[in-house]
Computed example of a mutant assay.
Amino acid sequence: MIDIVDPATRSRMMAGIKCKDTKPEVFLRKALHAQGLRYRLGGCGLPGKPDLVFPSRKAVVFVHGCFWHRYECRYFKWPQSNGAFWKTKLDRNVKRDMCVKAALKQLGWLVFTVWECELRETRFQLPNESIEQLLLELKSIK
């Protein structure tokens, strides 16, 4: 199936997709900061560039978008056009995620993943069960 928009339009659409400071990421950061947890951004030179790094706890958090990381939830839908391209790309993303997680664990880091859909369930408002669970786990690390 061919693309329904011209290449220039598709390029503009794809360029508009943010890779950092996304709504789920900012929401999670604000919620954790409000609970007194301090973190670093940018990955601190770690494999996979985690979204949040807690150096004192030796823990990292990834905030994954359901589409880009192929999380099978109600928000994930296979694209109708250019299926072979998207299957290859998304499979590669999932494989990379597994390798990054293994590398971080090998280095002694705890790895947490928060999915976009878990934050969208409450429309990016507190209370949120996923954030509360993450808070409990992070605060239990000494």
Score class of each variant (00 low, 15 high):
E129D: 12
D6I: 10
W86T: 01
R96W: 06
D21K: 08
Y75A: 12
L46N: 13
K18A: 09
E121V: 15
R40S: 08
R92Q: 13
K142R: 13
M13P: 03
C44T: 14
R96N: 11
G43F: 11
A15N: 13
N82G: 03
W68C: 03
R40D: 07
V94A: 04
K139P: 00
R40A: 09
G48I: 01
E132P: 00
R92T: 13
A84K: 13
W68D: 01
V114Y: 04
V100K: 04
L28A: 10
R74H: 14
I4K: 14
A34F: 02
L32D: 03
T22V: 07
K95A: 14
P47S: 09
P127D: 09
R70E: 03
S56V: 05
D21W: 04
K30V: 00
R40Q: 12
M14K: 04
D51M: 04
A31E: 02
L37S: 03
T122Q: 12
I17N: 11
C66H: 08
V26I: 13
Y39M: 01
C73S: 10
P127T: 09
G45R: 02
D3I: 06
H69T: 06
R10E: 03
A31Q: 01
H69C: 04
R123P: 00
E137G: 00
Y75G: 12
A102S: 14
C19S: 14
E118K: 07
G16W: 09
V114A: 09
N82P: 03
G83W: 04
T113E: 15
A103Q: 15
W68A: 06
G43P: 05
R12M: 07
E25V: 00
E25P: 03
T122K: 11
T9F: 05
R120Q: 15
Q125T: 15
V63W: 01
A84N: 13
T88P: 00
A103D: 15
M1G: 15
